[in-house]
Design a protein around this nucleic acid. Sequence first.
DNA 1: CATCATATGTCAAGATGTTGACGTGAGTCA
DNA 2: TGACTCACGTCAACATCTTGACATATGATG
Lengths: 138, 138
Amino acid sequence: MDLDTAVGYVLKRATVALRAAMDAALREHDLTVPQYSCLEQLAHQPGLTNTELARGTFVSRQAMHQLLATLKSLNLVHGDDGGRHERFTLTTDGARRLTGASTAVAAVQERMLAPFDPEQRRRLHADLTTCAEALDRR
Amino acid sequence: MDLDTAVGYVLKRATVALRAAMDAALREHDLTVPQYSCLEQLAHQPGLTNTELARGTFVSRQAMHQLLATLKSLNLVHGDDGGRHERFTLTTDGARRLTGASTAVAAVQERMLAPFDPEQRRRLHADLTTCAEALDRR
DNA sequence: CATCATATGTCAAGATGTTGACGTGAGTCA
DNA sequence: TGACTCACGTCAACATCTTGACATATGATG
C-alpha cells in the first residue's frame, strides 16, 4: 500500500542525499561524482574499455566517452590507444588525485553508515543488491 | 573498507534499476517519473506550492516550474492562481491518470520488494531513512 | 515603524546526459 | 569463405536539469 511507494521514495531520498554530500566532498578535489566513479573503477580494474566503464558508472557510452576525453586532457587517465577497444588506466597523477578523493568519499559514506554496526551494514548491502537484482530480472 | 564504498554503489545501482523500471511502466501512461511523482504528491497533499512540490520530488524549483507548466497544459493539475504562492490541485483528468499510473508503479515496487516479507520491508524503509537523515544532519 | 534577511516565482544561460544514427571491427554459422 | 549478427566507438541533435540572477513578498529585528 503506502509503504511500497514509500520504500521507493526513501531510496530516492537517500540517493539524493548521498549524491549531494559526495558532490560537496569531491568539489575540494576538483572532481565530479561520475569522474570519481570512473577513476575508482580504473583503480580496481585497470584496462577497462569505454563501454565497461559506462556500465559501472551507470551512464551511457556517449557520456563516458566525453567524460574520458576530459580526464585524458587532465592527464588523469591514459588510453593504450590500441585502435578500437581502447583500454584505459590511471596515470600517476590520476592515482594521486584518487587517493585524496577516495578518503573524502569514504568519510562521507562513513557518516551515512555511522548509525549501523558492521552486521547491519552487511545486511543493508545485501538487501539493496537483492532489490536491484529483483528489478533487473526480466 | 571496500564495503563502505560498496554500499553507496549498490544504493546507486538499486536507484537506477528502479528508475528504469518505473520509466518503462509509466511510458504506457504517458508520464515521466517526475511528473508521476508530482501528481502523487498532490493526491496526498492537495494545495502544495511550486517549491514544496520541488522539495518532495527532489528537483529544483525551476525544474518543477516548467514541469507544472506542462501538467497544466495537459489539464492534469490546476492552480488556484492566487497571485504569488499559487497552490495546485489535481484535476479530475489528473486524478484519473494517476490511478492507472499508481497501480503500475505499485506493481514495479512490488516486484522490487518481492523477496522481502513485511517486516524486512519495514526494516529496509527505516534503514534508508536513517541513512538519509545521517547525511542531511550538518 | 523602518529595515534587513529570507524565501519564493520566474527568466535566461549553461552544463550534462540521453536518444538516434552511422561506420567499423569481431565473432558465429551455414 | 562469405553473410549475418552484434557490440563498440563516435558524431550530432535533442531534452532535461542545474546554476545564476533578479524582482517581489513575507517575516523578524532593532
